[in-house]
């Protein structure tokens, strides 16, 4: 049966009426109309659905909506506001892209782009926790962090590494 659950998504408090055990992915996509997180496997094996919850990556395809009540959820749609907040500017209405997004454009990372929302989420988390990651640290973050590696079938890994390094430069300055 549907429950009324209060979520904070991309800086805005929202109430969704869903069954509590429904994965967050369907809440974000079908109830809140956010298309950044996408269905890849539904099994926490690919990373296409990744979002930030209180600054840490989770897989929205296996995380029940109820588990994020009272927490801050960020999708790629909310990265500009997240960046503005880190810089001490107002959270909403920011037009400036998060340095990770800008780096993804500058390095022309996406090929099909399907996996890239999840890839940017990893980068956003990594760079807040490790502002100057080495290439092995970047590879590690994308490969060995539970629950699974972030997979890109188009093979954009090299471009992702370049983009993370580029974003790191901007975020440090």
């Amino acid at each position: 049966m549907a429950d009324q659950l209060k979520l904070t998504v991309n800086g805005t408090e929202q109430t969704v009426s869903v069954t509590a055990e429904m994965p967050l992915l369907y809440g974000l996509r079908n109830e809140l109309g956010l298309s950044g997180p996408r269905y890849g496997c539904g099994l926490a094996q690919c990373g296409a659905c990744a979002v930030l919850v209180d600054g840490s990556e989770i897989r929205s395809c296996i995380t029940p909506v109820s588990a994020v009540v009272g927490k801050k959820v960020t999708t790629i749609e909310g990265l500009p506001a997240l960046w503005a907040a880190t810089k001490g500017h107002s959270e909403t209405g920011s037009q400036t892209l998060h340095p990770v997004q800008q780096a993804w454009i500058d390095e022309q990372v996406p090929q099909c782009g399907y996996c890239q929302s999840g890839m940017m989420i990893v980068a956003a988390e990594l760079l807040t926790k490790n502002p100057d990651p080495t290439v092995p640290e970047i590879k590690d973050a994308y490969t060995h962090k539970p629950p699974s590696a972030h997979l890109c079938r188009c093979g954009t890994y090299a471009a992702i590494i370049s983009a993370v390094q580029r974003a790191a430069q901007v975020m440090k300055s």
Partner: peptide, 21 residues
């Protein structure tokens, strides 16, 4: 020359096949 679709893909504005409602 850059791929024109990339900015929308990194900001979440692209309507993908899975986003038809």
């Amino acid at each position: 020359h850059p791929m024109p679709g990339i900015p929308d893909k990194v900001t979440g504005k692209t309507q993908w096949t899975c986003d038809v409602w």
